[in-house]
Computed example of a mutant assay.
Amino acid sequence: MMEKALLHQFSGFLNTPQIWEMAGPFPYSPFEVRNIDLQKMPVELHFPPTMVLGKRMERFFHFYVRHFSEEKIIAHNEQIIHEKRTLGELDFLLKNERSGKVSHVELVYKYYLYDPEIASEAERWTGPNHRDNLLLKLERLQQKQFPLLYREETRPLLEKLGITAEEVEQKICFKANFFLPWDHPSQRIDLPNDLVQGRWLRRKEFTPARFGRETFFSPRKPNWPILPQHNTHWLSYDDLQEQIMPLLEKEQSPLIWMKTGNEYRRFFLVWW
């Protein structure tokens, strides 16, 4: 039987919505990931417990495509190198086993927090540590990652696979979790409700007067996709503070699960 935490992580990956509505005039088709019955897994999924979140999501996508789709993986994580310099990486090249059509799929799995204090509306969806944002990621996809397929340096790989760039359809699987400020009205933001996964607040706002009676848990990053109702070990406010303070001091924003009676919430406590 697959380890429970891993199964919950995989379920979290599958159920994280795609951001297609937010991508604007994006010239690539979405690669759809459908829900599956996890009780009927054909094989077990294994990988090292130390694998970071991004690589973990790549492994989940690989597993999904191989066992639950009509696509065959003909290449993945292919680095394109020219004169000892890495130009970029193609995430997945897939071939439909029925139609024979080939697609290039870029996989993205992200967490974004809406910061109304950022001057430019387009840049307000920022990473939990304020080091990246949604706009930059979309620009990088359009300007670097997708054009990589058509570069002369990529041709030897395509020739080895017996395909040409012109016959390849480019697709994206962009799964993202969006978090609003704790007291910010959601109707003020043009965002589909199913994309909102939780809230965020600053360290100074996380006071014992406001939150001292609740119970919490701060999962390790590989467990961020898991729903909090699967958690069985809960901490007091003081015990949580002891757990998360080292992270905040290192300018890392922890994700926190909160339990109030039979209700569960997810939020980020940010250092900035």
Rank of each mutant, 00 (worst) to 15 (best):
E21P: 02
K110V: 10
K95H: 07
Q79T: 12
K95P: 00
V102I: 12
F63Y: 15
L53G: 01
A119D: 15
Y112E: 12
E123P: 04
R56C: 06
F68G: 06
R140E: 12
E121I: 11
D37A: 03
R85W: 07
D91C: 03
Q142D: 01
F31A: 02
E83C: 10
L138R: 06
N35C: 00
Q142W: 01
N133L: 15
E97M: 07
V65R: 05
R59E: 12
F60N: 02
K72A: 11
Y112V: 04
P25D: 12
L14P: 09
T86E: 10
K101Q: 10
H67V: 13
P42M: 08
G12V: 03
R59Y: 15
I19M: 13
N96R: 10
G54P: 00
I74E: 07
N133D: 05
Y111L: 13
N133S: 11
K55V: 02
F60A: 01
F92T: 08
I74S: 07
H62P: 02
E89Q: 05
S99V: 07
A119H: 14
E44D: 14
P128C: 10
E123R: 14
G88C: 06
N35I: 00
P128T: 09
G24I: 02
G12N: 04
R34M: 15
R98H: 15
N133E: 10
H130L: 13
A122D: 10
S120M: 11
H46P: 00
H82F: 14
L87D: 06
V105K: 06
M41T: 11
K40M: 11
K72P: 06
E83I: 02
E97N: 12
G24Y: 12
Q142L: 08
Q39C: 07
H130V: 02
V43S: 06
H82G: 03
H104R: 02
I19W: 01
N77M: 14
R98E: 13
V105F: 10
S103W: 01
S69E: 04
Y64A: 00
I81Y: 12
G54V: 03
H104G: 08
E123L: 14
A75M: 00
L87M: 15
L45P: 08
L53S: 03
R56S: 12
F68Q: 03
E32D: 09
E78N: 08
M57K: 06
H67T: 09
L107G: 07
M41D: 03
